[in-house]
Design a protein around this nucleic acid. Structure first.
Length: 412
RNA sequence: CGGGAUGUGGCGCAGUUGGUAGCGCGCACGGCUGGGGGCCGUGAGGCCGCAAGUUCAAGUCUUGUCAUCCCGACCA
């Protein structure tokens, strides 16, 4: 992409009404646009980042057998009344609206009911189970207080997956399989080392714990106690001696930390399947309950967490697999022909390049390449070309190398 | 929802004891410059969040309201 064609611009100043680093940098770099508190639009570069995160999550969900769908945002009142989650006293963060004929609707804040409802058309036999179904979709929650940029929004993007199993043992196997996939996701996103599986409250309908995936951050809303050796933590909300025993955690080895919940997996048991009357028939022709689990990852929240984590005093520092482009290409002086030639060559190799072809000073291009956090900056000038080379600068390490164009391509 | 702070061109800000709005960035045009957000000149752009009120006169005072951020509560 040529920067002269990109409609967004970077800003020298940071928005005064944002406190969170992720919001400041992402807005300053032109990745997102704030529409209102907790509601952000994704601009071309921000959308690329978001899509890269989605793709990693998608690949890992597919790897454990997840089947992707897309449910609806509009939800009928009747469906949620069956599980007693329509009443504002039970669920206080619905955005509700009406059809022209007066029928009440809600904007989906979660999708257990519609997923089960949809699957009820297809799941009848023990032969149809087990399954994982997931979607990546915008969720709406009328939060009393949106905060911290992308970390807590009223409209946000979530990957939510649901498992249906025949037996408790089968459910447990699916559940652990999903947990492993989650660990892989956070590893691939580069935050595996600071993300901990954390035991948390399982909700009102199960005696089991749920598992949160908590990423250490000063912005975190949760307090967790973690065992570094076991890479296991317990959420402050269930931090009791009895629970420590259940989890096999030793109080003296735990460290208190603030963390952001970047994923949460729940055993749902038969709450939704039973409430909606969805069962399967076993080998003996007997109707049996279906055991369910649900597995969430806040995609847009993750983007905020990553922006917050991968940043320095010059701006964003995206990992390669998340960055909106691999190379930020700059020509200094009268080297347009060579620079454009390299741009085309890199493009032919399928390498994502941001070509800064604007008529601005080099310093501004350098500053923008750093603010946007593109992993590599490639600079051409008369000086480098006189040696038949280009300059490769690593955004995160600052390391500079002089390479020929062929060496550059080979290296990427 | 309780507490605190802030609302002035696209962004960041100034605006004195009330007297009819200014700076920097950005933008447009011209010129210079060209390895770290450079320089000179010209110009466009604002119902001072909104609504009432006080006053001869309100960006400035009063009340209300809306919005944004932060702390707390909440987060199935």
């Amino acid at each position: 992409m040529r920067l002269s064609q990109l409609f967004t611009k970077t800003s020298k100043t940071v928005p005064a009404d944002e406190q969170a680093i992720n919001a400041k940098l992402l807005i300053q770099a032109g990745f997102i646009h704030k529409e209102m508190a907790g509601v952000y639009a994704y601009l071309p570069l921000g959308l690329k980042v978001l899509d890269n995160i989605k793709q990693i999550v998608r690949e890992e969900m597919n790897a454990i057998g997840g089947q992707e769908v897309m449910m609806t945002v509009l939800q009928p009142r009747e469906l949620f009344e069956k599980t007693d989650r329509w009443d504002d006293k039970k669920v206080d963060n619905w955005f509700k609206t009406k059809l022209d004929n007066g029928s009440e609707l809600g904007l989906g804040f979660t999708h257990e009911e519609p997923i089960v409802n949809t699957l009820s058309s297809y799941v009848n036999s023990y032969k149809d189970l087990p399954i994982f179904v997931y979607q990546i979709q915008t969720k709406f929650r009328n939060e009393k207080r949106a905060k911290s940029g992308l970390l807590r929004g009223r409209e946000f993007i979530m990957k939510d997956m649901y498992s249906l199993a025949r037996t408790p043992a089968e459910h447990d196997e699916l559940y652990e399989r999903a947990a492993t996939a989650y660990t892989k996701v956070y590893d691939r996103l580069g935050i595996g080392d600071i993300t901990y599986r954390t035991a948390a409250d399982g909700g009102v309908f199960t005696k089991k714990f749920s598992d949160e995936f908590q990423t250490l951050s000063p912005l975190g809303e949760d307090t967790i106690y973690l065992d570094e050796a076991k890479r296991l933590a317990i959420n402050n909300e269930i931090y009791t001696d009895a629970n420590l025993v259940k989890l096999g955690l030793d109080k003296s080895k735990l460290v208190e930390k603030r963390a952001v919940e970047v994923g949460n997996i729940f055993p749902l048991e038969t709450k939704y399947t039973n409430a909606l009357g969805v069962y399967y028939t076993d080998k003996n022709g007997q109707q049996q309950p279906i055991i369910m689990g649900c597995y969430g990852i806040g995609i847009s929240r993750l983007m905020g967490v990553l922006a917050e984590h991968f940043a320095d005093n010059k701006g964003l520092v995206w990992p390669k697999n998340i960055a909106p482009a691999q190379i930020y290409l700059i020509g200094i002086g009268d080297v347009v022909k060579d620079t454009t030639g390299l741009y085309e060559k890199l493009q032919q190799q399928g390498i994502e390049v941001l070509y800064d072809d604007r008529d601005v000073h080099p310093g501004q291009k350098f500053a923008d390449s750093e603010l946007m956090g593109i992993p590599y900056r490639v600079t051409l000038s008369e000086k480098t070309l006189s040696q038949n080379k280009v300059e490769l600068t690593n955004r995160s390490s600052g390391e500079i190398k002089l390479l020929t164009a062929d060496e550059l391509v080979a290296r990427l």
